[in-house]
Computed example of a mutant assay.
Amino acid sequence: MKTPFRAAVSIIVAASTLTLSACSDRSTEASAAAAQQPAPTPAVVAAEPETSPAPAQPDHFYAMTEDGEYGYQQALSDDDIKAGRATSALLMVRYLGDVKGVRSIKYVDGDISNVLSCAAPCKFVKSKLIYSGRVMRTETVPVTDGSVIQAVMSDAFNDRLTVFGRKAS
C-alpha cells in the first residue's frame, strides 16, 4: 500500500506532466495559428529626437562688420581684469588693400590712426602711428600666435576683407 505522502507526490508529478504537455500543445497550436494570421502592423515608434548640427564655424576671425570696418575682439588687459570688466571693446579696423604683396589695415581713433602693413608670410608688421595726418612713430612688431593682429592679417591674406570704401561683391 502506498503511503499518503507517496500518493501525493505521484499526483503532483502526474499533474505537472499533464500541465507541461498541455502547455506545449497550446504553444504548438498558438504557433500554427500565428503562422496563419497576417503579421501585425508595427506600433508607431516615436522618432528619435533630431540632433541639430553644430553651427558652422565662420571662415573669418572678425566678430562683426559695420560701415566697411571689421570688429575684432581684443583680449582683456590686466587692468581690465582688475577693474572687473568681463569684455573689452572691439578693435574696429579698415582694410586698405594689397599693394605689391603688402596688405595694410588701419584703425582710427579721432585724430590718431595706426596703419599696420605686412607681406607674406606675415611674421612682422610695420606700424605707422599717425596724428593729424603726420607720422609720429614707426616700428616693426612681431606677429604672435593668438594676437589680434594675427587674426586681422589672416583675414586679409585669406581675402576675407573688402577694401574700405568699396562695396562688397
Rank of each mutant, 00 (worst) to 15 (best):
residue 149 I to R: 04
residue 52 S to Y: 12
residue 55 P to E: 11
residue 68 G to V: 05
residue 166 R to Q: 15
residue 154 S to F: 05
residue 120 A to F: 08
residue 52 S to I: 14
residue 140 T to V: 15
residue 92 M to Q: 09
residue 169 S to M: 09
residue 169 S to V: 14
residue 102 V to H: 00
residue 123 K to G: 05
residue 106 K to Q: 15
residue 65 T to A: 15
residue 147 S to H: 00
residue 84 G to R: 10
residue 128 K to P: 00
residue 103 R to Y: 06
residue 140 T to A: 13
residue 90 L to G: 01
residue 83 A to D: 12
residue 169 S to N: 12
residue 152 V to L: 04
residue 91 L to A: 08
residue 160 R to V: 04
residue 71 G to T: 06
residue 67 D to V: 09
residue 143 V to E: 01
residue 111 D to S: 15
residue 120 A to V: 03
residue 81 I to T: 11
residue 164 F to C: 03
residue 142 P to F: 09
residue 111 D to Q: 14
residue 67 D to M: 13
residue 63 A to G: 05
residue 127 S to H: 01
residue 159 D to N: 14
residue 77 S to P: 05
residue 116 L to S: 11
residue 142 P to H: 09
residue 132 S to E: 13
residue 138 T to A: 01
residue 146 G to Y: 02
residue 64 M to A: 15
residue 53 P to Q: 10
residue 122 C to Y: 03
residue 102 V to M: 03
residue 80 D to Q: 10
residue 151 A to D: 11
residue 78 D to A: 13
residue 169 S to H: 02
residue 125 V to L: 12
residue 158 N to Y: 01
residue 165 G to T: 07
residue 90 L to V: 05
residue 164 F to S: 08
residue 78 D to L: 04
residue 126 K to L: 08
residue 147 S to T: 01
residue 84 G to K: 10
residue 99 V to Q: 12
residue 134 R to K: 15
residue 108 V to Y: 08
residue 121 P to L: 08
residue 145 D to A: 15
residue 133 G to I: 06
residue 149 I to D: 13
residue 134 R to A: 13
residue 169 S to W: 00
residue 98 D to Y: 02
residue 111 D to V: 13
residue 120 A to I: 03
residue 101 G to L: 01
residue 165 G to C: 10
residue 159 D to H: 11
residue 165 G to H: 07
